[in-house]
């Protein structure tokens, strides 16, 4: 696309050219766990292949990134065996940057992917990470985010889970320096017999740190979502602020949502809260919309979109937010299920 400074990595297959390039984004491709090309941009930000599989991403200290990185990880028929690999993301001291991690499947094989993403937020660094998961109906993908946040570090991860047979998102966050911040938000859409499992371990190890979790899910058909969130506040971690919420909207009567909020608090001067709900569509609101001429299915869609929007609005980048909003909308309209595989025109 002309008119934007979108850069494609060299030798990018045509089907992966982002149809909706975001301005100021650099793209890197990871195919079955292998980074295709090393990419360097914006005063020293670098993504290079890991030792075995996976990648190493580095934002140098003091770098205020003007461009952001989009990593597109996809599984395809080139390697259908189970794979597991680790990625390492280091956000250097006082740097500011953002990235988008997308996962896809390109062929209908049974994929099993086990991925560990190590994220180091060094002192004073700010990282804004958006994760978009869009895989087909026989793909199982487990991602473990191991996040370490140093003093005054600030990380936010927004996860948009659109599709996949079984997706497990684990977050293990250590707030290990004073005044460290971590915000985790997620929205997941599941239907059919899809399963999504979210586990968070938010470890407040030192005083004066802040964390917040908001996970919302829309469950249709016989789908199952589970959320286990633990906030641990260590003995000396006074003045901790930690919040957690998990809300599920059950669109069908056969869908199941499990929520296990856990607080483990050893300090005595903390502010912590947790809340978990599961509910159905609001009949009053549906009738109100229908009484204005909005059809029943459109009214349901509006309500579901509104439910998801609480999470989507946390995405700062307007274009990216709108793009993901549109994807959520087409997902809720059932358009994704019509595809044979997962090249869903989302990248």
């Amino acid at each position: 696309m002309s008119g934007t400074n979108y850069k494609y990595a060299p030798s990018l297959p045509e089907e992966f050219k982002c149809r909706v390039p975001l301005p100021g984004t650099v793209q890197a491709l990871v195919n079955n766990g292998i980074l295709r090309d090393q990419v360097e941009f914006d005063a020293g930000i670098k993504i290079v292949p890991g030792k075995d599989l996976g990648f190493v991403y580095n934002v140098p200290a003091n770098c205020i990134a003007k461009e952001s990185l989009q990593v597109i990880s996809f599984r395809d028929s080139g390697n259908t065996s189970d794979i597991s690999y680790q990625n390492s993301l280091v956000f250097g001291k006082d740097s500011e940057s953002s990235m988008l991690l997308c996962t896809h499947t390109l062929s209908m094989d049974q994929f099993n992917t086990d991925e560990i993403v190590n994220i180091d937020i060094e002192e004073g660094a700010t990282a804004d990470i958006v994760v978009m998961q869009n895989e087909h109906n026989s793909s199982r993908h487990k991602v473990t985010f191991r996040v370490k946040v140093a003093r005054k570090g600030n990380v936010r991860i927004n996860v948009v889970t659109l599709h996949g047979a079984q997706l497990d998102n684990f977050f293990e966050v250590d707030l290990k320096g004073k005044e460290a911040k971590c915000e985790l938000n997620g929205v997941y859409l599941v239907d059919g017999t899809q399963k999504i499992n979210t586990e968070v371990r938010m470890n407040h190890l030192v005083p004066d740190c802040w964390s917040s979790q908001l996970f919302k899910g829309i469950l249709d058909d016989k789908s199952v979502a589970s959320f286990t969130g633990r906030i641990l506040v260590a003995k000396d971690a006074q003045k901790t602020e930690a919040y957690q919420a998990n809300h599920n909207l059950l669109v069908s009567s056969a869908a199941k949502a499990y929520a296990q909020p856990q607080l483990e608090i050893y300090a005595d001067d903390v502010k912590c809260s947790h809340g978990a709900t599961s509910g159905r569509l609001d009949e009053n609101a549906l009738f109100y919309m229908r009484s204005r001429g909005i059809g029943a299915s459109e009214a349901k869609l509006l309500q579901q979109l509104a439910f998801a929007y609480d999470v989507l609005e946390k995405i700062d980048n307007d274009k990216l937010r709108q793009r993901l909003y549109d994807l959520v909308e087409s997902r809720l309209r059932g358009e994704f299920s019509h595809c044979d595989n997962c090249s869903m025109n989302c990248c």
């Binding site: 609001d282 009053n284 609101a285 009738f287 109100y288 919309m289 204005r292 001429g293 909005i294 459109e298 509006l302 309500q303 979109l305 509104a306 439910f307 929007y309 609480d310």
Partner: peptide, 16 residues
Amino acid sequence: PVEIPGVSNVNFMKTA
């Protein structure tokens, strides 16, 4: 009148 959080008045009216 029913409150519908997350659906803006504009969007609501435009859809209707």
